[in-house]
Protein backbone atom coordinates (compact mmCIF):
# COMPACT_ATOMS: atom_id res chain seq x y z
CA UNK A 1 0.00 0.00 0.00
CA UNK A 2 2.82 2.35 0.84
CA UNK A 3 4.39 1.88 -2.59
CA UNK A 4 1.03 2.52 -4.28
CA UNK A 5 0.63 5.70 -2.21
CA UNK A 6 4.03 6.99 -3.36
CA UNK A 7 3.41 6.03 -6.99
CA UNK A 8 0.07 7.84 -6.92
CA UNK A 9 1.54 10.95 -5.32
CA UNK A 10 4.47 10.90 -7.78
CA UNK A 11 2.03 10.78 -10.73
CA UNK A 12 -0.02 13.63 -9.26
CA UNK A 13 3.14 15.68 -8.78
CA UNK A 14 4.09 15.07 -12.42
CA UNK A 15 0.62 16.20 -13.51
CA UNK A 16 1.07 19.45 -11.59
CA UNK A 17 4.60 19.83 -12.95
CA UNK A 18 3.45 19.62 -16.54
CA UNK A 19 0.51 22.00 -16.08
CA UNK A 20 0.51 25.18 -18.20
CA UNK A 21 3.34 27.49 -17.05
CA UNK A 22 2.35 30.94 -15.79
CA UNK A 23 5.06 32.67 -17.76
CA UNK A 24 6.98 30.71 -20.39
CA UNK A 25 9.88 33.19 -20.66
CA UNK A 26 10.57 32.95 -16.93
CA UNK A 27 10.51 29.15 -17.11
CA UNK A 28 12.91 29.20 -20.04
CA UNK A 29 15.41 31.46 -18.27
CA UNK A 30 15.26 29.08 -15.28
CA UNK A 31 15.84 26.14 -17.64
CA UNK A 32 19.02 27.78 -18.98
CA UNK A 33 20.23 28.39 -15.40
CA UNK A 34 19.54 24.76 -14.53
CA UNK A 35 21.39 23.53 -17.62
CA UNK A 36 24.42 25.36 -16.30
CA UNK A 37 23.99 24.23 -12.69
CA UNK A 38 23.02 20.60 -13.30
CA UNK A 39 24.78 19.96 -16.60
CA UNK A 40 27.76 22.19 -17.33
CA UNK A 41 28.94 22.08 -13.71
CA UNK A 42 28.93 18.27 -13.87
CA UNK A 43 31.26 18.23 -16.86
CA UNK A 44 34.45 18.04 -14.77
CA UNK A 45 33.49 14.90 -12.84
CA UNK A 46 32.05 13.26 -15.98
CA UNK A 47 35.25 13.95 -17.94
CA UNK A 48 37.54 12.72 -15.18
CA UNK A 49 35.59 9.51 -14.55
CA UNK A 50 35.16 8.74 -18.23
CA UNK A 51 38.84 9.09 -19.10
CA UNK A 52 39.99 6.94 -16.18
CA UNK A 53 37.28 4.32 -16.62
CA UNK A 54 38.10 4.04 -20.33
CA UNK A 55 41.74 3.53 -19.41
CA UNK A 56 40.89 0.82 -16.88
CA UNK A 57 38.52 -0.96 -19.31
CA UNK A 58 41.30 -1.12 -21.93
CA UNK A 59 43.92 -2.47 -19.55
CA UNK A 60 41.53 -5.00 -17.95
CA UNK A 61 40.26 -6.20 -21.34
CA UNK A 62 43.80 -6.77 -22.56
CA UNK A 63 44.73 -8.59 -19.34
CA UNK A 64 41.70 -10.89 -19.60
CA UNK A 65 41.95 -11.79 -23.28
CA UNK A 66 45.70 -12.11 -23.60
CA UNK A 67 45.66 -15.03 -26.00
CA UNK A 68 47.35 -15.56 -29.38
CA UNK A 69 43.96 -16.73 -30.73
CA UNK A 70 42.32 -13.37 -30.13
CA UNK A 71 43.19 -10.55 -32.45
CA UNK A 72 44.71 -7.33 -31.06
CA UNK A 73 41.90 -5.06 -32.31
CA UNK A 74 39.44 -6.76 -29.90
CA UNK A 75 40.72 -4.52 -27.07
CA UNK A 76 39.60 -1.35 -28.91
CA UNK A 77 36.35 -3.04 -29.95
CA UNK A 78 35.52 -4.09 -26.38
CA UNK A 79 36.41 -0.68 -24.99
CA UNK A 80 34.12 1.03 -27.51
CA UNK A 81 31.22 -1.34 -26.92
CA UNK A 82 31.50 -1.20 -23.12
CA UNK A 83 31.76 2.57 -23.14
CA UNK A 84 28.96 3.32 -25.58
CA UNK A 85 26.48 0.66 -24.53
CA UNK A 86 26.85 0.67 -20.78
CA UNK A 87 29.53 2.73 -19.11
CA UNK A 88 28.68 6.18 -20.43
CA UNK A 89 24.86 6.10 -20.41
CA UNK A 90 24.32 3.95 -17.31
CA UNK A 91 27.30 4.30 -14.99
CA UNK A 92 27.64 8.04 -15.61
CA UNK A 93 23.88 8.44 -15.05
CA UNK A 94 24.23 6.57 -11.74
CA UNK A 95 26.99 8.97 -10.80
CA UNK A 96 24.89 11.95 -11.90
CA UNK A 97 22.06 10.60 -9.73
CA UNK A 98 24.46 11.04 -6.80
CA UNK A 99 25.59 14.52 -7.73
CA UNK A 100 22.56 16.06 -9.43
CA UNK A 101 19.86 14.04 -7.63
CA UNK A 102 21.07 14.93 -4.15
CA UNK A 103 21.44 18.57 -5.24
CA UNK A 104 17.84 18.70 -6.50
CA UNK A 105 16.37 16.97 -3.43
CA UNK A 106 18.37 19.17 -1.03
CA UNK A 107 17.46 22.39 -2.84
CA UNK A 108 13.73 21.67 -3.09
CA UNK A 109 13.64 20.07 0.38
CA UNK A 110 15.26 23.17 1.92
CA UNK A 111 12.74 25.35 0.14
CA UNK A 112 9.95 23.21 1.59
CA UNK A 113 11.14 23.35 5.20
CA UNK A 114 11.84 27.09 4.93
CA UNK A 115 8.24 27.63 3.70
CA UNK A 116 9.46 29.02 0.37
CA UNK A 117 7.26 26.53 -1.52
CA UNK A 118 4.27 27.64 0.59
CA UNK A 119 5.15 31.22 -0.36
CA UNK A 120 5.04 30.29 -4.06
CA UNK A 121 1.70 28.51 -3.63
CA UNK A 122 0.15 31.44 -1.81
CA UNK A 123 1.29 33.82 -4.55
CA UNK A 124 -0.73 31.67 -6.96
CA UNK A 125 2.38 30.21 -8.60
CA UNK A 126 2.33 26.52 -9.59
CA UNK A 127 5.27 25.66 -7.33
CA UNK A 128 5.76 22.16 -8.78
CA UNK A 129 5.89 23.48 -12.32
CA UNK A 130 8.12 26.42 -11.49
CA UNK A 131 10.63 24.41 -9.48
CA UNK A 132 10.66 21.03 -11.22
CA UNK A 133 9.82 21.50 -14.91
CA UNK A 134 12.93 23.59 -15.75
CA UNK A 135 15.11 20.93 -14.09
CA UNK A 136 13.49 18.12 -16.08
CA UNK A 137 13.85 19.97 -19.38
CA UNK A 138 17.41 21.05 -18.55
CA UNK A 139 18.70 17.57 -17.69
CA UNK A 140 16.91 15.92 -20.61
CA UNK A 141 18.55 18.43 -22.96
CA UNK A 142 22.03 18.61 -21.46
CA UNK A 143 22.67 15.03 -20.31
CA UNK A 144 22.89 13.59 -23.86
CA UNK A 145 25.75 16.04 -24.52
CA UNK A 146 27.46 15.01 -21.29
CA UNK A 147 27.13 11.37 -22.26
CA UNK A 148 28.50 11.97 -25.76
CA UNK A 149 31.48 13.75 -24.24
CA UNK A 150 31.83 10.83 -21.83
CA UNK A 151 31.81 8.33 -24.72
CA UNK A 152 34.52 10.23 -26.54
CA UNK A 153 36.69 10.69 -23.45
CA UNK A 154 36.19 7.07 -22.35
CA UNK A 155 37.44 5.74 -25.67
CA UNK A 156 40.19 8.38 -25.82
CA UNK A 157 41.29 7.49 -22.26
CA UNK A 158 41.37 3.82 -23.28
CA UNK A 159 43.50 4.56 -26.34
CA UNK A 160 45.88 6.79 -24.37
CA UNK A 161 46.33 4.28 -21.54
CA UNK A 162 46.63 1.36 -23.95
CA UNK A 163 49.28 3.01 -26.09
CA UNK A 164 51.20 4.57 -23.19
CA UNK A 165 51.36 1.32 -21.21
CA UNK A 166 52.10 -0.67 -24.32
CA UNK A 167 49.23 -3.13 -23.92
CA UNK A 168 47.92 -2.29 -27.39
CA UNK A 169 49.28 -0.74 -30.56
CA UNK A 170 47.54 2.47 -31.64
CA UNK A 171 46.59 1.16 -35.11
CA UNK A 172 45.04 -2.02 -33.65
CA UNK A 173 43.05 -0.03 -31.11
CA UNK A 174 41.75 2.40 -33.75
CA UNK A 175 40.87 -0.48 -36.03
CA UNK A 176 38.93 -2.07 -33.16
CA UNK A 177 36.90 1.05 -32.38
CA UNK A 178 35.94 1.41 -36.07
CA UNK A 179 35.11 -2.24 -36.71
CA UNK A 180 31.41 -3.14 -36.94
CA UNK A 181 30.33 0.22 -35.57
CA UNK A 182 26.55 0.54 -35.42
CA UNK A 183 25.28 4.13 -35.12
CA UNK A 184 22.10 2.71 -33.58
CA UNK A 185 24.08 1.84 -30.47
CA UNK A 186 24.70 5.53 -29.90
CA UNK A 187 21.00 6.24 -30.44
CA UNK A 188 20.18 3.48 -27.94
CA UNK A 189 22.59 5.00 -25.43
CA UNK A 190 21.12 8.46 -25.88
CA UNK A 191 17.54 7.19 -25.47
CA UNK A 192 18.64 5.57 -22.20
CA UNK A 193 20.32 8.82 -21.14
CA UNK A 194 17.17 10.88 -21.68
CA UNK A 195 15.04 8.38 -19.75
CA UNK A 196 17.59 8.25 -16.92
CA UNK A 197 17.70 12.08 -16.82
CA UNK A 198 13.92 12.12 -16.39
CA UNK A 199 14.14 9.52 -13.61
CA UNK A 200 16.93 11.33 -11.74
CA UNK A 201 15.15 14.68 -11.85
CA UNK A 202 11.61 13.59 -11.08
CA UNK A 203 12.45 11.04 -8.36
CA UNK A 204 14.78 13.51 -6.63
CA UNK A 205 12.32 16.39 -6.99
CA UNK A 206 9.58 14.16 -5.54
CA UNK A 207 11.75 13.39 -2.50
CA UNK A 208 12.55 17.07 -2.00
CA UNK A 209 9.05 18.38 -2.64
CA UNK A 210 7.45 16.23 0.04
CA UNK A 211 10.12 16.75 2.68
CA UNK A 212 8.61 17.39 6.11
CA UNK A 213 10.48 18.55 9.18
CA UNK A 214 13.87 20.23 9.29
CA UNK A 215 17.45 19.93 8.11
CA UNK A 216 17.75 16.28 9.20
CA UNK A 217 14.81 15.36 6.98
CA UNK A 218 16.37 17.29 4.09
CA UNK A 219 19.43 15.05 4.47
CA UNK A 220 17.23 11.94 4.53
CA UNK A 221 15.42 13.14 1.39
CA UNK A 222 18.75 13.64 -0.41
CA UNK A 223 19.89 10.13 0.47
CA UNK A 224 16.57 8.63 -0.61
CA UNK A 225 16.71 10.60 -3.86
CA UNK A 226 20.03 8.99 -4.75
CA UNK A 227 19.07 5.46 -3.67
CA UNK A 228 15.65 5.44 -5.37
CA UNK A 229 16.99 7.11 -8.53
CA UNK A 230 19.73 4.45 -8.75
CA UNK A 231 17.24 1.60 -8.30
CA UNK A 232 14.89 3.09 -10.91
CA UNK A 233 17.79 3.60 -13.35
CA UNK A 234 18.84 -0.04 -13.00
CA UNK A 235 15.26 -1.24 -13.58
CA UNK A 236 14.77 1.08 -16.55
CA UNK A 237 18.14 -0.02 -17.94
CA UNK A 238 16.99 -3.62 -18.00
CA UNK A 239 13.63 -2.80 -19.57
CA UNK A 240 15.10 -0.45 -22.20
CA UNK A 241 17.87 -2.86 -23.11
CA UNK A 242 15.36 -5.63 -23.69
CA UNK A 243 13.05 -3.31 -25.62
CA UNK A 244 15.68 -1.61 -27.78
CA UNK A 245 18.41 -4.21 -28.32
CA UNK A 246 16.68 -7.59 -28.41
Amino acid sequence: MNILYHIGRYVLLLRETFARPERLSLYWSRTVEEMDLLGVKSLGIVALLSAFMGAVITIQTKTNIDSPLIQAWVVGFATRQSTILEFSPTVISLILAGKVGSNIAAEIGSMRVKEQIDALDIMGVNSAGYLILPKIVATMLINPFLIMISMFLGIFGGWLAGVQTGVVVSDDFIMGIQLGFKPYHVVYALIKTVVFAFIITTVSAYQGYYTRGGTREVGISSTRAVVYSDVMILLANLVLTQALLL
Binding site: R23, E115, V125
Partner: peptide
Protein backbone atom coordinates in the same frame (compact mmCIF):
# COMPACT_ATOMS: atom_id res chain seq x y z
CA UNK B 1 5.95 33.95 6.97
CA UNK B 2 7.46 33.19 10.37
CA UNK B 3 10.90 32.66 8.79
CA UNK B 4 10.26 35.29 6.08
CA UNK B 5 10.48 32.58 3.35
CA UNK B 6 12.55 34.79 1.08
CA UNK B 7 14.10 33.00 -1.90
CA UNK B 8 17.77 32.45 -1.03
CA UNK B 9 19.05 32.58 -4.59
CA UNK B 10 17.41 35.93 -5.37
CA UNK B 11 18.51 39.39 -4.24
CA UNK B 12 16.25 41.59 -2.14
CA UNK B 13 14.91 43.48 -5.17
CA UNK B 14 14.40 40.24 -7.12
CA UNK B 15 12.45 38.79 -4.20
CA UNK B 16 10.11 41.78 -4.12
CA UNK B 17 9.78 41.79 -7.91
CA UNK B 18 9.15 38.04 -8.05
CA UNK B 19 5.32 38.04 -8.00
CA UNK B 20 5.25 40.95 -10.45
CA UNK B 21 7.60 39.13 -12.86
CA UNK B 22 5.76 35.85 -12.52
CA UNK B 23 2.43 37.28 -13.57
CA UNK B 24 3.89 39.73 -16.11
Amino acid sequence: FQGSALFDSLTVIENVMFPLRMFG
